[in-house]
Amino acid sequence: MPRSKRDKDVSLTKVKKKTRETKEGLVQQLRHAVDEYPNVFVYEFENMRASKFVQVRQKFKTNSRFYFGKNNVMAIALGKDKTDEYATGLSKVSKLLKGQCGLMFTHSDKDEVISYFRDLKDADYARAGVVAPQTIELSEGPLEQFAFSVEPQLRKLGMPTQLVKGVIHLTQNFRVCTEGEMIKAEEAKILKFLEEKLSVFHVNLKAYWNKKTGIKELE
């Protein structure tokens, strides 16, 4: 009897989880960074894009290290309370590791870092699941900004369109997204067609720790 195609052997290496050694390695890296760098910032980000954060890394590549990781593992590295904190005050840093955040270890001046991130705001296209900051509506009539060839794609995304003498027309008013509501996958694609950038990549500094002065939470 021929073997069923469903009876396939699946290598466990394809679903390999982070090992204990990997976590312990991160702990050691973070503690080494505490020894090497005098300043630590806790940061959180909005509308994260890997390509955007590359710019940040390039800016500070000569004097800083950035870490993303499991918040609990990073907290273990720093110490969760006064009895096991790796350096004085780091347990307070651990308590701020919530949500999408990371640690920046740096030799850079505190005010320079704060100033850089305060000004770092980069508009980008909103992803599905993001709450729309405003309502975008299109009026019935020609959409001359589009090439006629994309009309089938727009119609597939739910837009009431038709070609009239080679020009795409909306056959009725159309609301792309609504302020305060989550953007759907189709709406995100339409916004990209319209070149409407409703998201802003931004890094927010939550706190600053220095070996001599301790921790200070930042607004």
Rank of each mutant, 00 (worst) to 15 (best):
P160W: 03
F148V: 14
F193I: 10
V150W: 01
E144A: 03
C177F: 04
K216V: 14
S91I: 06
G166T: 04
V34D: 06
Q28P: 01
Q172F: 10
A77H: 06
A128Q: 07
L78S: 12
Q29T: 11
M104Q: 08
R65I: 11
V27F: 11
K197Q: 09
S94M: 00
Y208M: 05
N39Y: 04
V130D: 07
S199V: 07
A207S: 10
P2G: 09
S91F: 00
D7V: 09
L194Y: 03
E151A: 05
Q145V: 10
S149P: 00
M48R: 12
E219V: 08
P160D: 06
K212G: 10
V176F: 04
R155D: 05
K212Y: 13
F60A: 01
K95G: 00
P160I: 00
Q100Y: 12
V113I: 12
K121Q: 10
V150P: 03
Y125T: 08
R3C: 07
E187S: 08
N63E: 12
Q162P: 04
K16T: 13
D119C: 10
V131I: 15
E219H: 02
Y208G: 01
I168D: 05
L143W: 07
V113W: 09
V56K: 04
N210W: 01
K98P: 02
S108H: 02
S149M: 07
G102M: 07
E140S: 14
S115Y: 04
I190D: 06
T13M: 12
K92H: 15
